[in-house]
Amino acid sequence: MRYFRLFATYLRLGVLGELEYRANFWINLLQSLLELGVALGGLAVVFTHTDNLGGWQPDELLALVGVYFLIGGLIRTLIRPSMSKFMEDVRQGTLDFTLTKPADAQVLVSIQRVEIWRMVDVLIAIPVLSTALLRLGAQLGPAETLTFAVTLLSGSLIIYSFLLMLSTCAFWFVRVENIQVIFMSMWQAGRWPVSIYPAWLRAVLTFLVPVAFATTVPASAVSGRITTATLFGSIALAAALLLVSRWFWRLGIRFYSGASA
């Protein structure tokens, strides 16, 4: 509960900090619209030359784009800024201040920066997703809604744990902030259903960089093509990654403080 209050404080600071850079709202909006343009433009170009992509109809891909923006917005609003700050802190030595605070360092590090304007991605995702659902005429009953919500949540947790693990590498290596750049470029691959990729790449995007669980899986929940195995696999992976990332984080902290050296 107290971490919610802490998060609220960080959120408020995020708003305050970003108010200082109001122009960033417009830049972000522009950027998100541009990216939406690329996504939709990409779909448009593809669908001028075909009527389905690996069995996915245009509207189903639109739903995928919606999910992609929704989770992408979460990553950009909270996870990525916080992790950037964390890695910067490791390099500058200012992480010491975080570690001397009487609170869970992992939580502090994970919520410490909110880039509020990045939420435009979420704002953009909602109409895209709604349009897709309306056009699909999907009957979203309580079961489907719940499945969708659960897959979204576990997808987010999977991505969070994964990024936390990547960022934790900052304890051992310098300049790992570039890892995020690479992740975001891998992340783009989630704009397309992973089923179109060749088997080895699909494996990479599912297990090595778990993009599929955050994009393709929730989108397939909306378009009613999710299997029970996938649903539970997604939940199990989320739980497992949370634990593993927690363990890895502690390992990193121990290394940082010279306990394991």
Binding site: R2, R5, L6, T9, Y10, R12, L13, L16, G17, E20, Y21, Q92, G93, T94, D96, F97, T100, K101, P102, A103, L108
Partner: peptide, 27 residues
Amino acid sequence: LVMGQRNQLVWDIPVIDTFELNRAVYR
């Protein structure tokens, strides 16, 4: 711990807001 060469104040926001943050962290 105070380190003269390093900052814990958040760069872009007023000082009092960093204080608020510490208030929340230290309860």
